[in-house]
């Protein structure tokens, strides 16, 4: 793992209408690492991802990707700067079939997954490529949502609750996929409620509470932190 800084978030505030949701978030992600944002419901984890992308538009502070400030860029240019975003609700389009869903996002960088690589990672998608997008099971939808972003060739992923509502066996499948992406050099920011999942893939953790980052630690320090985490997060 290099120490090269990929993403830097400084004093990020974000609003939903008039109500402040992020109260000055600071964190950074190095190239090649998997960082997990953990915290209770409503702590601002998903909002942080949305604010980085610019889906939540009303924000202040600095978000720098490889030194380029993303605040102020239109949403599609944020994506073009090299970020892949997988939303919590997966966002599979019902009027498109599986194959169209997969092919929808445009190529952004070279080295994106080929169809063959995608089908190797998620064999289910090959079988179901002609089904309507929303006819898939929750797990298949999640695989499709991740797979279509891999096609774009971005090296930096924002994953919002990829295991939400999935059966344990599917959680393992997603976990295996995330680990293999990690191995291939992908940088990942993972928002996760399922702490057992996050601890198996993350290199570092940031703990969020009330729209702020309140703590951070590396995976190695996890065991000594468990007590504290039990208390603050009721894990």
């Amino acid at each position: 793992m290099t120490t090269e800084l990929l993403l830097e978030v400084q004093d990020l505030h974000a609003w939903y209408g008039d109500s402040l949701a992020l109260h000055g978030v600071n964190f950074s992600v190095r190239k090649g690492e998997t960082v997990s944002l953990i915290g209770r419901n409503g702590a601002g984890k998903s909002t942080t991802l949305k604010a980085i992308m610019g889906i939540v538009r009303k924000r202040s502070g600095a978000i720098r990707l490889r030194g380029i400030d993303l605040v102020g860029l239109p949403l599609h240019q944020v994506a073009r700067a090299g970020i892949g975003y997988v939303p919590e609700d997966r966002g599979i389009f019902s009027s498109l079939d599986v194959f169209e869903n997969l092919m929808l996002p445009p190529r952004i960088e070279s080295g994106g997954f080929t169809l063959q690589q995608i089908y190797e990672l998620f064999p289910n998608l090959l079988e179901r490529r002609n089904s309507a997008g929303t006819k898939l099971s929750g797990g298949e939808q999640q695989m499709l949502a991740i797979a279509r972003i891999l096609r774009t060739g971005v090296k930096f992923l924002l994953l919002d609750e990829p295991t939400e509502g999935l059966a344990p066996v599917l959680v393992q499948r997603i976990g295996a996929a995330v680990r293999s992406l990690k191995k291939s050099g992908m940088t990942i920011v993972l928002v996760e409620q399922n702490f057992r999942f996050a601890r198996r893939v993350a290199d570092r953790f940031y703990v969020m509470e009330d729209g702020k980052i309140v703590d951070s630690f590396a995976a190695e320090e996890l065991s000594e932190r468990m007590g504290m985490l039990h208390e603050t997060l009721r894990l």
Partner: peptide, 18 residues
């Protein structure tokens, strides 16, 4: 395909870089 997808969820399509 962009059009159909954006009809459903324009923000997500834009977040793909479209």
């Amino acid at each position: 395909a962009y059009l159909r997808a954006a009809t459903e969820n324009p923000v997500l399509v834009q977040s793909f870089g479209v």
